[in-house]
Amino acid sequence: MMRLWRRHRHWLAPTLFILPGALLFGIVIILASVQTIWVSFFDWDGVGPMQWVGLANYEQLAEDPQFYVSLKNNVIWLGMFMLAPPLGLALALLLNQAIAGMKFLKSMFFVPLVLASVTVGVVFTWVYDPTFGLLSLIYGWFGATAPALLSDEHLVSFAVVIAALWPQVAFCLVLFLAGLNNLNEDLIGAGRVDGARGSAMLLHVVLPQLREVSFIALAVTVIGALRSFDMVAVMTSGGPFGSSTVLAYQMYEQSIFSYRFGYGAAIATVLFAIMAAFIAWYLRTLLRPEQETA
């Protein structure tokens, strides 16, 4: 027995090592995700028996105006979130100076990143409060009355995204600061010697070196936009009249509040499809350099 173990441990041991993590992740995350697709072909209230309905959920979805509202809002999220990388880069360029005290100031800029989205949601609900919020104060200075952003069907999504941008910009800031710290000093020096300065330097010497970081900032931003749920749930619960829902929220609402699990699963599957396309692209880019060297 002992001999058998010694002879085979070079592959048995690693198998045993990877098993707990792989099984847990495989069942709870991967299998569950795939199962959602399966559920989307059923009519199910979450408790009773499941009723096979084929593509009926998807057909319903195609005719559901709320679905298009969610889709439109997801696009708004995605589009507005694209501001995060450039804003993060701008802040990083502002902050990248080695002066006494800058370390502390920089870390203060990172704070929104570690706040819970609930916290951010609550904080911004305050900011947007039409009677005593920060926004009303600013409008007050100009003798105007602040709009009730969170109850305005047309503005509500933008208001929520701006709140969500706060931590996202901080995230990009962290990434770009790290990128700026890893710049090749020789190249910068060479650029200076060649007379590049200011924006020419940024464009031709600095940005090319930030390619990888920019790619990552872009990726986490896209994923963040598609994942958006917490802020909508906390700030508006999808309202007013469902005008600020996103796919993730609509799916949650349909399943948990309306007990339409099959329908919810269909929405999740659509979200999954959008995400999967993106993840595939991301993984390919992430894993490719290694394949070339291997």
């Binding site: 990877i18 792989a22 992740f25 495989g26 709870v28 995350i29 991967i30 299998l31 569950a32 995700s33 199962q35 959602t36 559920v39 979450g46 994923i223 598609l226 994942r227 749920f229 796919l247 993730a248 799916m251 949650y252 399943s255 699990f261 919810g264 699963a265 929405i267 999740a268 599957t269 979200l271 999954f272 995400m275 993840i279 595939a280 991301y282 993984l283 992430l286 894993l287």
Partner: peptide
Amino acid sequence: VFALFVGGNFLPAQIMMIPV
């Protein structure tokens, strides 16, 4: 296996909500 770990980590939580 590695790709599954990485890819799964990017999935939106709602995808696995119902089965979980």
